[in-house]
């Protein structure tokens, strides 16, 4: 992130080894993702690398299959709705956790965080069991609420961390200047929370959009998320269509991250 020019000096051997080692790790992490891109433009019917020719047929295949588009739409809608609910709940919860002392506060905060550490499959089964009697199984709202459970910890954690850093004297100063609780929150606390919240929301959107295990138990005909639609497709056909979809997602995600980075400096939110 820092664009300070390093001083010119001879690089010791140990640092060159370190650079090579780091380079290898980066390559290892990025390689599978990067292989997806050339495959998406392949003219082959099967997934072979390196591709023998270039074509855009797999991208047009996405358009030709309405189930991908509707799954994309559903995933996006679920992600936005779940993130929005998590934001409201997360900020309110963070205010309670940070600004007020009450019995069982630490235990409750831990409970909110458990979806981060519990095996997803346990949560998936549990949610399916709860949703069934509620009639929410295989429904948009069932899926969205399940995603709230999954995304809330990310929002709550960044909101708690950001709010802890905001001295309560700011809100108090607003009060002494005539702002009631809502005005102080709206004009002072919330703007100061914004960078942390945007970072949390970015995470929440990605987590929700990407979610597989829990969604698998809750989806059904007409309510299908993109990752599951892709998985279903791969069971019958393993052609570069999946690579093409992945490439589109890669580009969209990168744009989103860049925009948010420009707006608030995402790196700062994660100690970068």
């Amino acid at each position: 992130m820092a664009d300070l020019a390093p001083p010119v000096r001879p690089v010791p051997a140990s640092e060159r080894w370190l650079a090579a080692y780091v380079g290898l790790i980066v390559l290892f992490l990025a390689l599978p993702v990067l292989i997806v891109v050339p495959l998406a433009f392949s003219s082959d019917v099967s997934l072979t690398f390196p591709p023998r020719g270039v074509s855009l047929r797999w991208f047009s295949n996405i358009w030709a299959r309405p189930e991908f588009l509707s799954a994309f739409g559903l995933s996006a809608a679920v992600a936005v709705v779940a993130t929005a609910i998590s934001m409201v709940a997360g900020v309110l919860a963070a205010i309670a956790f940070v600004r007020h002392a009450f019995p069982g506060r630490d235990a409750l905060l831990m409970l909110f965080m458990t979806p981060l550490v519990f095996p997803a499959i346990v949560l998936a089964a549990a949610l399916a069991l709860v949703m069934t009697p509620l009639g929410l199984l295989r429904s948009f709202w069932g899926l969205a609420l399940a995603h709230v459970v999954l995304t809330l910890p990310y929002i709550l954690r960044t909101a708690v961390a950001t709010l802890t850093e905001i001295d309560r004297s700011y809100a108090e100063a607003a009060h002494t200047l005539g702002a009631d609780r809502w005005q102080a929150f709206r004009h002072v606390t919330l703007p100061m929370l914004r960078p942390g919240l945007l970072a949390g929301a970015t995470f929440a959107l990605i987590i929700s959009f990407d979610e597989f295990t829990v969604s698998m138990f809750l989806v059904g005909p007409g309510v299908m998320t993109l990752p599951l639609e892709m998985y279903n497709y791969s069971e019958f056909t393993l052609d570069p269509t999946l690579a093409a979809i992945s490439t589109v997602l890669l580009v969209l995600t990168s744009i989103a991250i860049l925009v948010i980075e420009k707006l608030v400096g995402l790196g700062k939110q994660f100690g970068g």
Partner: peptide, 20 residues
């Protein structure tokens, strides 16, 4: 009476100027 209805002015030790 709530602080926002007391018509007071207060200077805090850390000044609490709104950074945004």
């Amino acid at each position: 009476v709530a602080p926002w209805k007391r018509n007071i002015g207060m200077v805090f030790q850390n000044y609490a100027l709104f950074p945004h």
